[in-house]
Amino acid sequence: MKKFFFIINANNAKAIHTFNQLKKVMDEEEISYRTFYTEYSGHATEIAKKITYINKDDIKAVIAVGGDGTIHEVLNGMQENQSIPLGFISGGSGNDIVRVLTKDVKGLKKQLLYLKRNRIVKTDSGNIQLVGRSNKIQSFISAIGIGLDGEVAKSTNEAAYKKYLHKLKLGSLAYVFTLFKVLKFYVPDSMEVKIDGQEYGFNKVWLVAVGNMPYYGGGMKICPSAKSNDGILDVCVVHDLSLFKLLLLFISVFWGGHVNVQGVSQYKGKEIEVVTRRSVAIHADGEYKGTTPVRIKVQPGTVSVKI
């Protein structure tokens, strides 16, 4: 009999609490499952890679219990077994991936129905490679952030207050707090963005976002028209804005209103390369990955997702 394989972020109190409640119901319903708890950063990738290799024929779905970072790690562990469905039970601070693909299933009743129904769809993912420094290619499913938001993601994941906000169920505020902290020292710089062979140059760039989905950072609708199944990545470049105008822009990004502001340029493409004068931070699905230059490429219909 096939089983659900749960990978739970053990450093996330909300994720553990959510799964412990679900576990009781699954036992009552005699649902077959196995559990694995992460112990350190990157562990979910190692677990996913191992269980999908050893138990490939016994897996009904691999369910990530945590936030976008946990999903990102599990996704990368399943690169060689992408036919196995990937599912989610949200328990993080951002939950942007869950917001798009499963409409954030909350409550035991809905979570149980989610597990019982057999709906699988194919969605796109993307590849990210640090140019000239590594042959390793990693996957992302939501978005890439380069520049200010890459630095915010890096600092947020390192911040002690993120854990406290998690406990208060205010995890998404961690990104807001970190943004204002990073803005004290961040200086925009010039960047070159190549999209499907076409080169664009920008001055005073705050950030470049490459989206397979509209959201990141806990509900910020950075690429409003991005769709996870169209074989295209959306690109948003924020440039030539004063700090004051950037802060006004930040308010409107939660409903996508920033796209109408001068200094926000949007594009679509399948292959994107970003080169900067000085190295700037990069995040993928909210996880810090390194610094520019970087090459990004869409992978159409590569992920089987349980919805």
Results as ranks from 00 to 15, higher is better:
I232G: 00
H239S: 10
I296W: 05
K103W: 02
F140Q: 11
H72M: 04
A15K: 10
P293T: 00
T276D: 08
M191N: 00
G171L: 07
R117G: 07
G69F: 03
Q198V: 15
M213C: 13
F6Q: 04
N9R: 04
N118K: 13
T123A: 12
D68S: 10
A44V: 05
T70Y: 04
L179S: 04
S83V: 07
I51G: 09
Y164L: 14
N135Q: 08
N229D: 15
D57M: 12
I272N: 01
F88K: 03
I128H: 10
Y267R: 03
I128Y: 14
K181H: 04
Q138V: 03
A281V: 03
Q299I: 12
L115P: 13
K306T: 04
L86P: 04
A15Q: 07
R278Q: 10
L101R: 01
S93D: 07
G94K: 02
L101S: 06
K136I: 11
P293M: 09
M213N: 10
A174V: 03
D58V: 12
S225Y: 14
K60D: 14
D285N: 10
Y200W: 09
A64T: 09
S41M: 11
I31N: 07
A15D: 09
K49N: 15
G219S: 07
K23Q: 15
K297V: 11
S41L: 14
F254N: 03
Q129V: 07
